[in-house]
């Protein structure tokens, strides 16, 4: 986003905030259930609050309240929307601001403040009603989570028309830091091939998923490993063919000891005979070592060893 676009966005957000503040207090939907003993009992048990004034009618009768009252900290519980948010919840002036932030990429959310003030205890049977006021928007702020806006609002709970509790709530809406699009740089693979003018064509082919075999441009002889001069006709004119990519295990070993840098043991190395008539060495992978055998049909695959090196390897043909 350009700096100008960023400034425009900020202005739009702040203007929206001003409008939402001007909306003032908006009443929501009354508690789905009246204040009741079963919910109090569950909450008190979960919180480990054993005060009998919340659950024991007899004890409560002897208290200053004269009857069972709800724990004040339960105030949000009574009007919190359930998991099934079915539209019974009224809109609040905060909603538009949160939506606008989401739409601008501030999709992350973390609660930063929650300050509650209780005016009196709620009694069984009361049905509190929340009323929400949008209080303010500040930002953008750079935070450890990412750039974001602090969004603040107030809720007052009423019983009938009597305010029983207030809450200031603040969240940080932030742009999650972009995940690194590149994966972590890989550990360099320690077993690099030396490459020169005579062998570069092979490794270029590997990079394109081609298993290349040197071919004499004059007499047509195929040769692996390659070299600069055709041993049959002395020609230095060379080209290559792309192998079919299948082969047969001519011999193989299972390496156990000592450890090899860049490798975990045991691993299999094979001499693979190609139908084109040359042999090539490579690992047999995706196959338990004990299932490898001379005569096994294999096909080529390509493995990225680090950011630079790809190696041709061999897998069982049936897989």
């Amino acid at each position: 986003m350009t700096a100008t676009a960023e400034a425009d966005l900020h202005d739009r957000l702040m203007a929206l905030a001003e409008r939402q503040i001007a909306v003032g207090e908006v009443r929501g939907v009354a508690a789905a259930d009246p204040v009741n003993l079963p919910m109090i009992r569950h909450w008190a048990a979960a919180m480990g609050d054993a005060n009998p004034v919340y659950t024991d009618a007899e004890a409560a009768a002897g208290s200053a309240h004269g009857e069972i009252v709800a724990p004040p900290a339960m105030i949000q519980v009574w009007t919190m929307p359930g998991v099934d948010r079915d539209g019974r919840q009224a809109t609040t002036p905060v909603d538009d601001v949160l939506r606008a932030l989401d739409g601008s990429g501030y999709t992350g959310v973390v609660a930063t403040n929650c300050e509650q003030t209780y005016h009196r205890y709620l009694r069984l049977g009361e049905r509190p009603v929340p009323a929400t006021r949008f209080a303010g928007l500040s930002g953008p702020k750079r935070t450890a989570l990412g750039e974001g806006y602090f969004v603040t609002w107030n809720i007052t709970w009423y019983s009938q028309d009597e305010p029983v509790a207030d809450m200031l709530f603040r969240v940080l809406k932030f742009r999650p830091r972009e995940r690194k699009t590149k994966p972590e740089a890989r550990e360099p693979y320690p077993l690099k091939p030396a490459i020169n003018k005579d062998t570069a064509f092979f490794w270029e082919g590997v990079g394109r998923g081609e298993l290349r075999i040197q071919r004499c441009a004059d007499c047509g002889e195929l040769r692996h490993p390659p070299g600069p001069v055709c041993p049959s006709c002395r020609s230095v004119e060379r080209t290559h063919v792309v192998a079919s990519g299948v082969g047969e295990v001519y011999s193989y070993v299972v390496h156990h000891n000592p450890p090899v840098p860049g490798r975990s043991t045991p691993f299999v190395v094979a001499v693979v005979e190609l139908p084109e008539g040359v042999r090539i060495v490579g690992n047999v992978v995706d196959c338990p070592p004990e299932e490898v055998g001379i005569g096994m049909q294999v096909r080529v695959t390509y493995r990225q060893m680090d950011d630079e090196l790809i190696l041709p390897m061999w897998v069982p043909q049936e897989s």
Binding site: P193, A194, V269, V281, M305, L309
Partner: peptide, 15 residues
């Protein structure tokens, strides 16, 4: 010799 080894060493065939 290094080029010769390069057909084998990258595959861990090096002892």
């Amino acid at each position: 010799q290094g080029l010769e080894m390069s057909w084998h060493v990258p595959y861990g065939l090096m002892t």
